[in-house]
Design a protein around this nucleic acid. Structure first.
Length: 451
RNA sequence: GGCCCCAUCGUCUAGCGGUAAGGAUCCCAGGUUUUCAUCCUGGUUACAGGGGUUCGAGUCCCCUUGGGGUCACCA
């Protein structure tokens, strides 16, 4: 069975880049009838943010994904880590190091001064003497002393890290006993049965360390997929400075979850020429081995287009529900012209509500003497007591016919009177939906306000 | 700086030794729409550079350049 996981540290909201690796993991698990797990990496209490988990869950809920099991909190698993640390100590794969922080810093400084790579020198690796007093030891793992560690990455290919240039006996437990990141990640992934690790490629350089842990503990290695970062328009890693990196912000902006997921899925991955994917297709067609190796830039245009396409596929009732407005024919009139729900809502309200003012430019261009006369003729015609017997659309056509003028002469002033501006959906559709009484009222108000 | 990754239109991508380098988006033009939007049609724009390998390289190898990531008793 395929088991994947998303493992954020609870430092803030769910980031757009995090969501992408999360859905990659989620889709891949679902496609294989496997499991998608959520683990919170909160071993560092100082950076723990209480609201963060709630925010992540809220974002998950919005886009419609969830963990298949209870959420795992690393802060609650110290017993498990302790057990494996003890095991490593007993089997001689790890050891206590009594070097103080100050000594370590000094060593690093010297190495840097000599232009060497800062690296632990292994002084306690084979220590058998009497430990210094007053120093709480850290636990270090025995890394290989030579050779290479090869990460068989299914996105990047085989990546070779020489032990010489990349590793040392790194710390797996701090002086206070708390285990460190690379150790707990490896232990948790193994213990939780994670078979496919899909994560950002900023973790690629950590992977050799985790492999050292896997091997020391005789754990089976998972498949690794290191997904390229999403960059901003400057070409740098997407960060909070870039504005909308909070997934939930996209809900506020009026994007549909399916549109955001579709967009993120296609960023760095493709399926032939296919651009639009239903949720089922996202699951059935996705394969992480097809993810591109290079980073991609987040640009909003494609998302806007996708969102517009998804909105077109929504029914009148679905849109009414989403926007918490009455389901009316007006929605059908405006839904194909918007790329976000916010736009749609604005367009809807522009028609639903009577205009509060009238666009100056529109008036200047479309409300001259001849237009005034036509609008008045139309007004009088629909005011007629017998009007109930013919439709507003017919009256509209009749006026044009009688007066022998083009449509625009009447349509534009009428449009301004009804919605306040010279741009809107078909004016005939508008008056038909609004109905005689409302159209009359709006024209009267217009006459009153605009002399 | 060390280590690692990456490199096709502005952007997202197809391409997996032989293509007129395809699609999407954006932009522009025309059409439709009395208007705006939608929609339809058309168009501009790309293999970073240099060496190899090969009958033949966007595709394979090397170098250069450029970009990114990572180097904690953070995650």
């Amino acid at each position: 069975m395929i088991v994947t996981r998303f493992a954020p540290s609870p430092t803030g909201y769910l980031h757009i880049g995090g969501l992408r690796t999360a859905i990659f993991s989620y889709f891949w698990a679902k496609k294989n009838n496997g499991k998608f797990l959520l683990r919170i990496e909160d071993t560092d209490r100082s950076r723990h943010n209480e609201d963060a988990v709630g925010g992540i869950l809220k974002a998950f809920e919005w886009v419609g994904i969830k963990s298949d099991e209870e959420i795992v909190y690393q802060s609650e698993r110290t017993e498990i880590y302790k057990k494996y640390i003890d095991q490593l100590l007993e089997t001689g794969r790890a050891y206590k190091c009594y070097m103080s922080k100050e000594e370590l810093d000094q060593l690093r400084e010297e190495q840097t001064a000599r232009k060497e790579r800062p690296k632990y020198d292994g002084r306690y690796r084979n220590f058998t003497g009497v430990p210094p007093i007053g120093i709480e030891p850290v636990i270090r793992i025995k890394s290989p002393e030579s050779g290479n560690i090869i990460v068989k990455d299914l996105v990047k290919g085989d990546v070779v890290f020489s032990v010489e240039d990349n590793l040392d006996d790194f710390i797996i437990a701090r002086a206070d006993g708390m285990p460190t990141y690379n150790f707990v990640v490896a232990v948790d992934d193994a213990v939780m049965g994670v078979t496919d690790v899909i994560r950002g490629d900023d973790h690629l350089s950590n992977t050799p360390k985790q492999i050292v842990v896997y091997e020391a503990l005789n754990f089976k290695l998972p498949n690794f997929y290191h997904v390229p970062m999403i960059h901003n328009s400057e070409g740098k890693k997407l960060s909070k400075r870039d504005g909308a990196t909070d997934v939930l912000q996209y809900r506020e902006y009026g994007y549909l979850p399916d549109a955001l997921l579709n967009f993120l899925l296609r960023l760095g991955w493709s399926y032939g020429d296919k651009e639009l994917f239903s949720r089922e297709e996202m699951i059935n067609l996705f394969d992480p081995s097809g993810i591109n190796k290079s980073a991609s830039i987040f640009s909003i245009e494609k998302l806007n287009w996708i969102n517009g396409e998804k909105i077109k596929n929504l029914s009148r009732d679905e849109i009414a529900n989403l926007l918490n407005i009455n389901s009316s024919q007006i929605i059908d009139l405006v839904k194909d012209r918007c790329s976000t729900l916010k736009d749609l809502e604005r367009e809807f309200l522009k028609i639903e509500n009577r205009p509060e003012n009238y666009d100056e430019a529109s008036l200047k261009k479309h409300y001259r003497d001849d237009n005034k006369k036509l609008l008045n003729i139309f007004y009088k015609k629909i005011k007629d007591i017998d009007h109930d017997f013919i439709s507003l659309a017919d009256s509209f056509a009749k006026v044009l016919e009688d007066e022998k003028v083009g449509m625009a002469k009447l349509a534009q002033p009428l449009r301004i009177a009804i919605v306040g501006i010279a741009q809107s959906p078909s004016v005939v559709d508008l008056i038909s939906i609004l109905g005689r009484d409302e159209v009359i009222s709006r024209i009267e108000i217009f006459f009153e306000k605009v002399k």
